[in-house]
Write a protein that binds this DNA or RNA. Sequence first.
DNA 1: AATTTATTGTGAAGATAATAACAATGTTTT
DNA 2: AAAACATTGTTATTATCTTCACAATAAATT
Lengths: 217, 217
Amino acid sequence: MSNDTVKIPQATAKRLPLYYRFLKNLHSSGKQRVSSAELSEAVKVDSATIRRDFSYFGALGKKGYGYNVNYLLTFFRKTLDQDELTKVALIGVGNLGTALLHYNFLKNNNTKIAVGFDVEEAKIGTSIGDVPIHHMDELEKIITEMGITVAILTVPAPFAQTITDRLVAANVKGILNFTPARLTVPATTRVHHIDLAVELQSLVYFLKHYGVDEEEE
Amino acid sequence: MSNDTVKIPQATAKRLPLYYRFLKNLHSSGKQRVSSAELSEAVKVDSATIRRDFSYFGALGKKGYGYNVNYLLTFFRKTLDQDELTKVALIGVGNLGTALLHYNFLKNNNTKIAVGFDVEEAKIGTSIGDVPIHHMDELEKIITEMGITVAILTVPAPFAQTITDRLVAANVKGILNFTPARLTVPATTRVHHIDLAVELQSLVYFLKHYGVDEEEE
DNA sequence: AATTTATTGTGAAGATAATAACAATGTTTT
DNA sequence: AAAACATTGTTATTATCTTCACAATAAATT
Ligand SMILES: NC(=O)c1ccc[n+]([C@@H]2O[C@H](COP(=O)([O-])OP(=O)(O)OC[C@H]3O[C@@H](n4cnc5c(N)ncnc54)[C@H](O)[C@@H]3O)[C@@H](O)[C@H]2O)c1
Ligand SMILES: NC(=O)c1ccc[n+]([C@@H]2O[C@H](COP(=O)([O-])OP(=O)(O)OC[C@H]3O[C@@H](n4cnc5c(N)ncnc54)[C@H](O)[C@@H]3O)[C@@H](O)[C@H]2O)c1
């Protein structure tokens, strides 16, 4: 909850991880400097928006030169707390949950799914991609012990709210919710929805009703 | 590309599938009428926003009464083209692709993953949850034959752009892109990104820097 | 060291979206 | 059928976000 820097617009905050990832790419391909125009081409965000986004953190670039990749990368690593590993719990080791467990979020993120929970006996006690799966009965105990405050929810929708209430009670502050349920949480908890069915359906809607030749998102 | 109704704000268009889903829930639980306030509670969208969203389509409700669930449902079914099945192709039958193949998007959506593509010989010719998997060599031929114009991309990032170019050439107009790559497409093609790593990372960023007690998304 | 060139950082304008607030009006109750 | 009540649709207001456009200025070139 460090308020060291000014409060950044939400839209900007959502782009930061994207910038960070592309800067890492640039860095590992040996690039020393980059302009907002180049970055714009790569991340598909208007160059003025990029400059504005960066400017919230002060003057990071040099006029007539652009940005030093290494400097920017170091700066964002600190800003995004990439030096500190964030451990995450995943609830619901089904189709989607298993796919996520196999994915290495650590690669760009310094975020790791550290533990999984399910109710199906066959899964309890196994490991999926080095992540141990526990029974839901142990949820509160284990996440408290591990100091986990972020959870990914990939259970069937009817269980989502009950489990959310348990997570909140166990001090979880952020939930990435893949279920179609809209969760009720106290104001101290943040929920991000990823609603795959809605995404697909709204894409289809846009195609049918908007023609195209509008901007992409 | 039917422009039968006025052009709806993007923010509104993205909420339509959500409204539709909750209306279906209400309907199947036997509810006859609903107010914007009730709906607001369920979908976590401000009631004024809901009324405004609906108003783009004309006067759908009745003052002092609210909205007739059945009427609204019928209206949105037509608006969202739910009477017409949209067939979708999925490219990259890996961890994530397989999870999506197992999911029944038809349930709320009238959208169906109708065919999958991969390069791994072991997968070619198999079916996953009744969806046949073909080799990438047949991509253009099959999606053209099937008249598919929407694709889901779940391949490793380095292949994303090349495959996108092929999809575009084969008349695909909408791409749901799960890879971290930012795709270059002509203005006639629409790309929606679902960037899971970014979602997780930005959730963590918000928790650390915004305290909470802001609104949820 | 003067000149040209590139590119930032930002004020101003424009665009989009969310919310408040309430008159209008239909529904329900008495 | 009159009075009380509920809830919409919309106008006005405010908030958020994006983009333009350009003066300021550092870098590169001559
Ligand atoms: N798979 C997809 O592509 C997809 C697409 C859109 C939405 N979703 C949503 O994501 C969620 C998960 O989807 P899925 O396809 O992985 O489902 P799934 O049925 O494969 O997995 C659900 C898992 O949750 C476990 N579970 C059930 N009750 C539980 C409980 N009370 N506590 C803990 N675990 C419990 C089940 O044992 C199972 O392992 C669902 O809400 C679904 O609607 C999935
Ligand atoms: N799994 C996740 O949770 C997750 C999370 C974030 C991002 N992603 C992204 O989603 C994408 C897929 O992830 P995944 O975990 O399913 O990977 P995966 O390696 O399990 O699956 C990729 C599939 O694509 C196939 N493939 C490879 N080259 C191909 C080509 N040229 N044409 C067609 N198919 C090809 C592979 O055979 C494999 O089946 C990746 O870009 C990944 O970065 C996945």
